[in-house]
């Protein structure tokens, strides 16, 4: 039974695209058939983060409007062969997405894959509501910072009101993914603590992704962090989150990047 997962946040720049790529790759490495769909029409990024920007021929809009067939637009990942990308169009805007078209594409994707992961654009407008429309599960990406938390709260409200499931009177599974978390800064009160965010949003926690330079490095390489450096802190956190999504129980820790003792001494002195 295929599951449609939307990665959303309301606020921009919190790590939706990075998380989509990393969790998509982690699920694919477990042997699941995964497609990541870029809904950010007009400001596409997922192709860059996945390192597929040179292979885009057709995109989501072409499929929605019937100019191309779905298999023509899907790009298979070169590193993990159960992972596919359906890119967004950079030249069109979100008005080119129609409700019926999106619904048809989602139904086709449900038949082909185990997981359909939709990377939502920022905001609460048409693009974001269409991305969440057909979701069974939602990941709400939040930074430990007040404006991000408030925007996430708003998105949770929309998930309970505007999705196809909500309109049928069913509930959509919502998970919180806390990204760019720095335990030391949270302890010093420079960031919201995990408990504070959980208390405000009151949805279950899927994982905590530590702030790490590995994430930026991976994006610039065009490779999801779970592929480029699977032993790094964020990659392990994303892999654990993916396992929890598949229903496994994994103890929640905040993995940090492994450093040698010398490194650590040096870092401490520098800080």
């Amino acid at each position: 039974m295929a599951k449609v997962l939307v990665v959303t946040s309301g606020k921009g720049g919190v790590g939706k695209t990075t998380s989509t790529a990393a969790i998509g790759a982690a699920l694919a490495k477990e042997g699941k058939n995964v497609v990541v769909v870029d809904f950010d029409v007009g400001l596409r990024n997922l192709d860059l983060v996945m390192g597929a920007e040179r292979r885009v021929v057709y995109d989501l809009i072409n499929v929605v409007q019937g100019d191309a067939k779905l298999p023509q637009a899907l790009i298979r990942d070169k590193r993990v062969d159960t992972l596919c990308l359906l890119p967004a169009s950079q030249t069109r805007d979100k008005d080119a997405l129609t409700e019926e078209g999106v619904s048809q594409v989602m139904n086709e994707l449900r038949e082909k894959f185990d997981w359909v992961i939709c990377d939502s654009p920022a905001g609460i407008e048409r693009g974001a509501t269409l991305a969440m429309r057909h979701a069974d599960v939602a990941i709400v990406v939040t930074n430990p910072e007040v404006s991000s938390v408030r925007d996430s709260d708003r998105i949770i409200g929309l998930l309970d009101a505007k999705t196809a499931r909500a309109e049928k009177g069913e509930r959509i599974d919502k998970h919180l993914l806390l990204t760019r978390y720095d335990p030391a800064r949270a302890e010093r009160g420079e960031m919201l603590k995990t408990e504070d965010v959980l208390e405000i949003l009151s949805i279950p926690l899927l994982g905590i992704i530590p702030e790490s330079e590995e994430v930026l490095k991976a994006s610039n390489l065009g490779s999801p962090v779970t592929i480029s450096n699977p032993l790094s802190g964020p990659a392990r956190a994303y892999a654990d989150a993916a396992k929890r999504l598949s229903g496994e129980t994994v103890l929640l820790t905040i993995p940090t990047d492994r450093r040698s003792l010398l490194d650590r001494l040096f870092m401490r002195r520098a800080a």
Partner: peptide, 8 residues
């Protein structure tokens, strides 16, 4: 009987 979310 549910939380009131931002914007509601």
């Amino acid at each position: 009987d549910s939380p009131v979310r931002s914007g509601q």
